[in-house]
């Protein structure tokens, strides 16, 4: 309990990943799904940095986490733009209601 090691950080990452996966698979709300994706990406970041600190990888893990942050920013921008378009077309952000691909 009192000695914090690699396994502790990995467990936090695993829990966050599972919560994000639950959010992505069960939510109907498009914004909720995107938040779940953010949780998953953050869980990956925790693992990258924890491995770099306690095991192999070193600074390279941090650089990968940096790339993940940039990727999350790009994903959020495009994803939320799609949510706006979805709302304009269907007047809802319920993803199960968006069944047509044509604009």
């Amino acid at each position: 309990m009192l000695h914090v090691g690699l396994a502790h950080f990995l467990a936090v990452g695993a829990l966050l990943f599972a919560l994000g996966a639950y959010c992505v698979t069960t939510r109907k709300n498009a914004v909720g799904i995107l938040m779940g994706v953010e949780l998953i990406l953050n869980a990956a970041n925790v693992n990258f940095v924890a491995f770099g600190h306690y095991s192999w990888g070193g600074i390279h893990g941090q650089v990968f986490a940096l790339f993940v942050i940039v990727l999350a920013a790009a994903e959020a921008a495009v994803g939320l733009a799609i949510v706006l378009t979805l709302y304009r077309h269907y007047k809802t952000i319920d993803v199960t209601r968006a069944e047509r691909l044509e604009g």
Partner: peptide
């Protein structure tokens, strides 16, 4: 983890 639970 509580924040993640809150999102869910």
């Amino acid at each position: 983890v509580a924040g993640g639970l809150g999102v869910v």
